[in-house]
Design a protein around this nucleic acid. Structure first.
Lengths: 126, 126
DNA sequence: TTATCTGCAAACATTTTGCAGCGAG
DNA sequence: CTCGCTGCAAAATGTTTGCAGATAA
C-alpha cells in the first residue's frame, strides 16, 4: 500500500459522505498534505478494486467515492444538499431484480439502485 | 421543434437500444443526414427535458439515450453485449424506495434502478 | 542500487459554448 | 428583415497516461 493510498484511505475513513476525486484532492491539500491529483485518482482506483471504497456516478458524470462500513452488498441513500449518505440493505430488491431479469429472458450481471433526496436536517432548507 | 430535433427523434423512434450522442451523430451521418454534433447534443437535451427520451449514464460516464414507449415511470434492463433494452415496471420497488428513505429520515427526490446482463440471444456468447 | 511511487504536464474523451452564416417566416 | 437554428471550432470538464525525478526497500 502506497503513501497516497494510505492518505486517501485515512481521509475517507473519517467521512460519511461521497466525494469526487477532485474534492478529495483539494481537501487533502487544504489540510497541508502533499499529493498530486493523478496519484489521488490512482489511489482511488486501487482502493476501489480492493473493495475498500464504493464508487458511484453522479448525475453530472463525475465519479464519487466513499469508504463503506459494510462488507456485504448494499445500496446508498444520499442527501443531495449536504452529501451525507447512509447504506441501505435491500434483500427484497435483490430478489426482485433477479426475478425481473429472468422473466425477460436475461441473466443478470449487475444492478444499481441509488436513492437521493433530503436528509432530516436539510429537509426544509431551500 | 427544430429540424435536428425531429431528425434525432425520428431516428430514436426506430430503435430499442440506448445510444450515445456520438453514436447517434455518426449513424445519422452514415445514412446521409446532415447534422452537427453540437446540434445533436442540443436536440437530445431538449428531447430529454420534454420527456421524449430517457437518459442514463454509462459505466464509462457517457450519457445514453433512448426513446421510451411508456409514459409512466419505469426502469431499464439492458443487455451488455448487444445493447438491447427492455422497460421494467416495478411498483414494489418504488414503494420500497419510499419506505427506505422515510425510515432513514429522508424525503426521497429521485431514484435510479438499472439492471444489466445478457439477453436470451447473447446468453452463451463470450 | 533497483524497483516502485509520485507529480507534473500533456493527452484524451465527452460535452458545452461562442459566434458567424444560413434559412424560415 | 429578423430571429432562431445550425455547425464549426474553441473551451471546459473530468480522467488517464508518459516520463523524469524522488523515494523506499
Amino acid at each position: 500500500m502506497t503513501r497516497v493510498e494510505r492518505l486517501v484511505g485515512d481521509f475517507l475513513r473519517g467521512r460519511d459522505q461521497f466525494a469526487s476525486a477532485q474534492q478529495i484532492h483539494a481537501l487533502l491539500r487544504e489540510q497541508g498534505e502533499r499529493a498530486g491529483l493523478s496519484s489521488v485518482y490512482r489511489a482511488l482506483r486501487a482502493l476501489e478494486q480492493a473493495g475498500e471504497v464504493d464508487a458511484l456516478a453522479n448525475e453530472a458524470g463525475e465519479t464519487l467515492f466513499r469508504r463503506c462500513a459494510a462488507d456485504q452488498h448494499h445500496h446508498h441513500l444520499r442527501c443531495t444538499r449536504c452529501g451525507v449518505s447512509v447504506d441501505v440493505a435491500a434483500p427484497a430488491v435483490e430478489r426482485w431484480a433477479e426475478r425481473a431479469a429472468r422473466e425477460a429472458g436475461f441473466t443478470l450481471d449487475h444492478h444499481t439502485v441509488e436513492l437521493s433526496g433530503r436528509c432530516g436536517k436539510c429537509a426544509r432548507v431551500p
